[in-house]
Design a protein around this nucleic acid. Structure first.
Lengths: 231, 231
DNA sequence: CGCGATATTGACCTGAGTCAATATACGTGG
DNA sequence: CCACGTATATTGACTCAGGTCAATATCGCG
């Protein structure tokens, strides 16, 4: 599915391999295998033995948490070049979240121990990984802050801005979020119901802040959304 | 405030220094300075330039997030041997949360760059740090799940069980949480108001699940609390 | 012992969840 | 290319968990 050049390109652009030389990337590439997934196909499930590090080579991946009563939490949506799975592998670890293909996906992956070897041999890589983990921890804590103190309107505004930042491309509709996301999915990212998400998006649309349709959203007035999140 | 033996003991018990030999710990100890804090004294504030790694040598530390309108989130309470601050230091970083002394505190701390050097020289230490960061990320994501899908009763039960796990000691009252926490603080950990926290604690007390008083809580029936968190 | 901080409890109100009916966008196949 | 059918979205009506405001009770320190 991916030719050698694409694979090496993807791997070389990973933030934590940035300190490595081209020939080292080629060497590392040999440890990775690739695999395709269809939309909604499971990549791994929370609780599975955690032993692989994945990199998105093409498509979009969803990271989710589940509940007994079928309430899901959409933690993050990943795009080409993003990585997920088992970063710091330790014996007996299990995945703490589930990963699904959202669109058709091509993913590269490697055994945890192989990655551990890389970390052992390249302290600079380990430091970059730690920085990235720190960013992810801060992002998660920020979600805790919003869920604890902000109302749905503020949380949804924040989610849209974050998505635009990560997946947005300017179009004639405004900043279009380049991933098909429905109301239910926005709700799962915001900690609310699809109905409430729909109501608030309608309101945003009336206020000229966004334009939206079936499984797509574009931001027309980012400033107006930002002003909602202030305090 | 701390004599040499205590310092070396504290440092040697840090999970990420576990792979190091005693003489290396002694060497590392020389990079740490100590400082005392009074209750409610600021150790650092969210947004300050982040350049120190701290270790609690005595007392309890609170990690918090704030809001413009004065709503606070209590992310975590730390005890002797816990560490906080700047783990993966990168240029221009600022602290993502605020740290306060809750009780009288003695803290050891070191410059970010010094710790970076240790990480560079000891890949095994770096791997342990990554494992710990992964645990913290998972804990934060679990909070997101609870805040997104669980009601206050379930969240409070979860908070109490987590506190008991970390700070609990069995006493004649049950498992006593060894840290003075008031209703307002439990509320800040749970994402609710002090009044609602109080109401639910009263209910727990009536049901024989906890015993509680002014700034203390003990769990008398952990199983009954666990059963609340199931789904 | 008395006072200030903390906790409890009550009354009220509102944001947002749920259930349900309707409307609309978009892919599919004719 | 259009019409149809279905998944998705919208909107309404209702309900309720839990937030807020306020009055009272109680703990434990000085």
């Amino acid at each position: 599915m991916c030719d050698l050049d694409l694979r090496v390109y993807i791997l070389g652009r990973l933030p934590f391999f940035e300190p490595l030389a081209a020939d080292e990337i080629h060497e590392i590439n040999r440890h990775f295998t690739e695999r395709g997934y269809s939309p909604d196909e499971v990549i791994y499930i929370e609780g599975d033995p955690a032993n692989r590090l994945y990199v998105v080579a093409d498509g979009n991946v969803k990271l989710m948490l589940h509940t007994k009563r079928g309430k899901d939490v959409l933690l993050d949506v990943l795009r080409i070049g993003d990585f997920f799975g088992s970063l710091a592998h330790s014996a007996g670890d299990v995945y703490a979240e589930s990963a699904y293909a959202h669109t058709p996906v091509c993913a590269l992956s490697t055994e945890g121990p192989a990655f551990r070897t890389i970390l052992n041999d390249h302290p600079a890589v380990a430091l970059r990984v730690m920085e990235i983990m720190a960013q992810r921890l801060n992002a998660a804590n920020e979600k805790v802050r919003l869920l604890s103190t902000a109302n749905v309107e503020q949380r949804l505004a924040h989610v849209l801005l974050t998505l635009a930042d990560k997946l947005g491309e300017s179009s004639d509709q405004g900043i279009l979020i380049q991933m098909p996301l429905g109301r239910a999915e926005l709700a799962e990212m915001t900690g609310t119901s699809p109905e409430t998400a729909s109501r608030i998006l309608s309101q945003f649309q009336n206020d000229g802040r966004v334009r939206t349709g079936r499984r797509w959203t574009a931001i027309t007035d980012p400033e107006a959304l930002i002003s909602l999140t202030q305090d």
